[in-house]
Amino acid sequence: MNMVSEIASAPRSRGASDPAVRMEDVNKWYGSFHALENVNLTVGRGERIVICGPSGSGKSTMIRCINQLETIHSGRIVVDGHDLTAGGKNVDLIRQETGMVFQQFNLFPHMTVLDNCTLAPMKVRGITKAEAEETAMKFLRRVRIPEQAAKYPAQLSGGQQQRVAIARALCMNPKIMLFDEPTSALDPEMVKEVLDTMVDLANEGMTMLCVTHEMGFARSVADRVVFMDRGEILEVATPDAFFDAPQHERTRFFLGQIS
């Protein structure tokens, strides 16, 4: 346990002094179910974290706490220097600075791809339609689907939809990107195009927290891999250490099951 907390709190900042995310003794319950148990994790700027673990282990819950889609019952979460437990204004700020990509894409079905991308920048940041569209096209080109801008989400494949979702989040110029099983709802042949987009993003230095079962992605992209089970962080290690020499028995069991 000692080793875990040591690595978990190791500062690896690549930018300013504040870490991107700092979680201290975070606890959350659903009724009597202990969803997060004394979670401690510090994520440096520009760091790429992959979170894995069996289903129901609290991975999604943990990253959903970072932008307050879930509230916590005790502990402290500081994102980009803003303490979330202080509530109100800080929560709004954090949501603007973190982008999230969901398993089910959650694109707005009644809007075109372009409108999906321009809505939040216009309504939240108050920029003009022309500016927002320019930014949107820039990011749609980056995820390699500018030609789909006028289409509705239902007219796109799953992989294309998820890339739009990534572009939509990037349009807010987030400092941190949260990925909640972004490839789990995709047909196998579409997983690669989404992972490639995520790799591009990682190479550009984006701070990323990814809940994923794509162990190849974890190995090649992650700076650290976090293993969770039953609401606890059991192990935090570099990919090499994590895959080649897992410390915890439950980590070994998990890795044995998925490989």
Binding site: N67, L69, Q96, F102, N106, L107, P109, L119, M172, L178
Partner: peptide, 27 residues
Amino acid sequence: VPKGQREAATALGLRYYHSMRQVVLPQ
């Protein structure tokens, strides 16, 4: 309207009025 729609709007920083007005109610 699926819960994820509201969540996506919230995650983008849209507050109650805009997430209802632009995202949930039109659907």
